[in-house]
Nucleic acid binder design. Structure first.
Lengths: 205, 205
DNA sequence: AGCTGTGAATCGATTCACAGCG
DNA sequence: CGCTGTGAATCGATTCACAGCT
């Protein structure tokens, strides 16, 4: 099996969500045409993406939804069965960071919030959370000890590059960047930019 | 001038941010190599992207930062001078939506928050904001009247598809989707998926 | 018969390589 | 001389077209 192309990977993430949404009560099999309608991609693209999974579960009435979903989970590394969880942390506990603190957002996902960091010690003493909060200086140790893989970056824009550099030095696998700052790049650290400004600017035309 | 390729557009958005960060005090000209270091892309890619702008401002010491920035703004449609503002709204005023309400986030951008919507009337009466809040039923009228172009979608996942359909029917230009739901597609409506779960799942490997 | 799955063709983006310019 | 700017080459993803399966 060849390495999954990046665009296909991202589409499969969406496709998995579509299948989850359709899970209960809906048709048990879905054709590539139907999946195309639901996602906005062509049936060609859908079929190619699915073929990357290396299963061969198609039939004249389409793909069995459950088999397909399982195969996507498998390929993406979300092996549903084996209950593999990925630990995440939040860096920056301002207004935006606090919105994620409840952790409910993550309850139906393979991710768990395991720690929060802020440079303001006052905040970490005041806030009530289901997981521990630490001053940013303790980042390295906590990330290593807790085997934390990913980070949500929700600091002030001005503090973001420095915080990102720390995270990269800790060997974090990926940073979801909610700030408008452009972050330094690390060899092994992936970055997804999701600041509202960036997203909106991307759409301008 | 040909139509700007989508990948180049997105890189130019980032490049503009890098130039803004370097604006004060730093070198007045930047070579493609330097820009490459700052962004993680190759100098080839950078030069190609800049060539799409159709200016010819390069020299052996690189590009003049201010000219370059102005050209990017021009091409992206953020004509800094003419103070063209793009009105946005927030749909869904739960924890996450409220984090955006202050609108400070948008102050250094060409975007302005012009309205908020929630299906829960209680919320729109309780919250204090610098712009008006409405029940979701009034979306169509408010969006038309306020010439609102873009929306941030921060409802519960379950309510997201319906809200998106409404927005698409209103002819909104783009939706920044903070929910994990996969949204229906409209002909003229762009969608950026920025839910934490989606972003994290994209990075899994 | 109608779908999938996949080689082959196409299309578009990135990279190379070098001419032209400051 | 060292950079930019851009045709040409390469690389990768999407689309086409059809063989194979159910």
């Amino acid at each position: 099996m060849r390495q999954l192309p990046e665009p296909s990977r991202k589409r499969l993430v969406q496709l998995a969500k579509v299948l989850e949404q359709h899970r209960c009560g809906e048709a048990l099999t879905l054709t590539s045409e139907k999946l195309g309608e639901l996602t906005g991609w062509t049936q060609h693209t859908i079929r190619r993406d699915i073929s990357h999974l290396g299963i061969r579960c198609g039939s004249p009435n389409g793909y069995p939804a459950d088999t397909l979903l399982a195969a996507i989970y498998e390929t993406l590394g979300i092996a549903a069965e084996q209950e593999r969880r990925h630990a995440c942390c939040i860096v920056g506990l301002g207004r935006l960071g606090q919105a994620f603190l409840s952790g409910e957002l993550f309850s139906a996902s393979p991710f768990v919030l395991a720690a929060g960091f802020d440079k303001n010690v006052n905040r970490i003493e005041t806030l009530k959370t289901a997981f521990p909060l630490y001053p940013q200086s303790r980042m390295r140790g906590v990330i290593a000890q807790g085997a934390i893989e990913y980070a949500l970056l929700t600091t002030e824009d001005a503090d973001a590059p420095a915080a990102a550099r720390q995270l990269i030095d800790c060997g974090i696998k990926g940073i979801v960047n909610y700030t408008a700052a452009v972050l330094p790049r690390g060899e092994q650290t992936l970055i997804e930019n999701v600041s509202p400004i960036t997203a909106l600017t991307n759409m301008l035309r």
